[in-house]
Amino acid sequence: MLENFSFRTIVEYLPLFGQGLVTTVWLSVLSFAGALAVGIVLAAMNLQRGWLFRVPAKAYIDAVRATPLLAQLYFLYFGLPRLGIVLPELVVGILALSLNSGAYVAEIIRAGILSIPRGQVEAGVASGMTYIQRMRLVILPQAFKVTIPPLLGQAIVLVKDSALLSLIAVAELTRAGQLLASDRFMPAEGFITIAAFYLLLYYGLKGLAALSGRWLGLAGART
């Protein structure tokens, strides 16, 4: 069985996989930055008491979470041009991942803020802090700590989701595997190799999570 497995071809295609890996990494970084921006805005809207901001934010989050990422990607890729908005594949891909992941990030941030005990808000109020000061000095620094681990989990999901961009011809890691599979009829070699690279990225992010955990643990433990 293994005599049919061509390591030589994998080595031959390594530059292509390398390019795919680099593309996956930077488009994931950009998408996650976008997701953070989308998530912070949505979480802020969702935490308001008035319905004016809260209802649209909730509707958006529900819509994103209820529909497949693939459907959202196809809507942006095939749907937007029909509406007169034509964007390059890469931009559509990053946009789709940002908008999708942003909904999940919003819920992580909201949960982090709501996990801070009521007494912290009251301590800030009692010392004469404004809403903005309480958020900036008391709530967000504490919420930040508790959201780091779930945010890194969401980043791992995003990296794997980015494989879907191969379907709109973005030359990322999975696309490299597809090319090997279709050019040389070597799907086993192609997809095993990308699996190994994804595993590499996964351990990279996990290491980052462990590092940040240790770093945050040093800066004042929570009671």
Binding site: Q120, E122, A123, A126, S127, G128, M129, G220
Partner: peptide
Amino acid sequence: MTRLRTEIGFVFQSFNLYPHKT
């Protein structure tokens, strides 16, 4: 109210110190 609160110290049963601050 925000200004008035600066003139009033409040000590809570559960302390409510900021855990991320010394």
